[in-house]
């Protein structure tokens, strides 16, 4: 079990996260927040890249920073900006990462071949990554994160650059993997996690806003979502008053889905 206890992080005087308390058990957790809300900071703390100013992060009761390489040994991480050597082939790069991860040399080859097949890169396994598309690079990133069969898999914006078919394949893969491990998935794309996440964690104003399953989170909005049709010139004023979920042009007017705390008769 991975626990964040009263964790706060600030850079100088700028407070990014305040009193974060989360508990992770096996399953998929979707970390949902707008850009700049502190998702990556939270993830970087869970991956030991940055240190909290206050609080502690425990894995099975031990501080992850004190545990050091033992904790990192069960960690798989795909950063938001995945760095790679452009002149390496995926196979060579995965071999390099497996050395860093301290994986047994006898098992490495088989594991790499399996992962290359899993992410659909076996045909280009020996090609230099210099000419790869964003989606292909992202798949190399996913493969390297899973190389050590991690008990905690942390993926920061993993579907960026993947095409719809790859997204589906990736979601199915995560569902399979989550049975025996903690998977934390950070994204600002709701559709990436709505069907697979066991729990959704929402961050707002430096704090955890909600941590619940999708059904319960949707209940919060029960009776608050409305739909209406407006003339184009009315839209601007209406936008200032209500939070828009979607807007669409239809039959010469605007069809708008929005949230309202007040009861409305439309």
């Amino acid at each position: 079990m991975l626990i964040m206890n009263n964790v706060s992080k600030s850079y100088g005087r700028f407070l990014v996260l305040e009193n974060i308390n989360i508990e992770f058990t096996n399953g998929i957790y979707g970390l949902l927040a707008p850009n700049g809300a502190g998702k990556t900071t939270l993830i970087k703390m869970l991956t030991t890249l940055i240190f909290p100013n206050e609080g502690e992060i425990l894995y099975n009761g031990t501080d992850i920073f004190a545990e050091g390489d033992e904790y990192r040994d069960i960690l798989g991480y795909l950063p938001q900006e995945f760095g790679y050597y452009k002149n390496y082939s995926p196979r060579k790069f995965l071999h390099y990462i497996s050395v860093l991860k301290g994986i047994d040399r006898n098992k490495t080859k088989k594991k790499i071949e399996g992962l290359l097949k899993l992410v659909g890169l076996e045909d280009v396994a020996n090609k230099k990554m210099r000419k790869f598309s964003g989606g292909m690079i992202q798949r190399v990133g996913i493969a390297q994160a899973m190389l050590n069969d991690p008990k905690i898999l942390i993926l920061d914006e993993p579907t960026a650059g993947l095409d719809p078919k790859e997204r589906v394949r990736f979601r199915n893969l995560l569902t399979q993997l989550s049975r025996e491990r903690i998977v934390i998935l950070s994204t600002h794309i709701v559709s990436d996690i709505e069907s697979i996440a066991n729990e959704i964690i929402m961050i707002k104003d430096k704090k955890i806003l909600h941590k619940d399953n999708l059904k319960n989170i949707c209940k919060i909005l029960d009776g608050k979502v409305y739909e209406t049709k407006l003339d184009f010139d009315q839209v601007l004023n209406f936008r200032n008053e209500y939070f828009f979920l979607s807007e669409k042009q239809e039959d010469g007017s605007m069809k708008i889905k929005f949230i309202s705390e007040r009861k409305m008769n439309l």
Binding site: T47, T48, L49, G68, D69, R72, D73, L75, Y77, P79, E81, F82, G83, Y84, Y85, I97, L100, K101, G102, Q144, N148
Partner: peptide
Amino acid sequence: LIDNKDKISYIQYTSKIG
């Protein structure tokens, strides 16, 4: 420089070798 500039250190520092 290469590892820091290309952000490969994220992967390096979060792997077992740290």
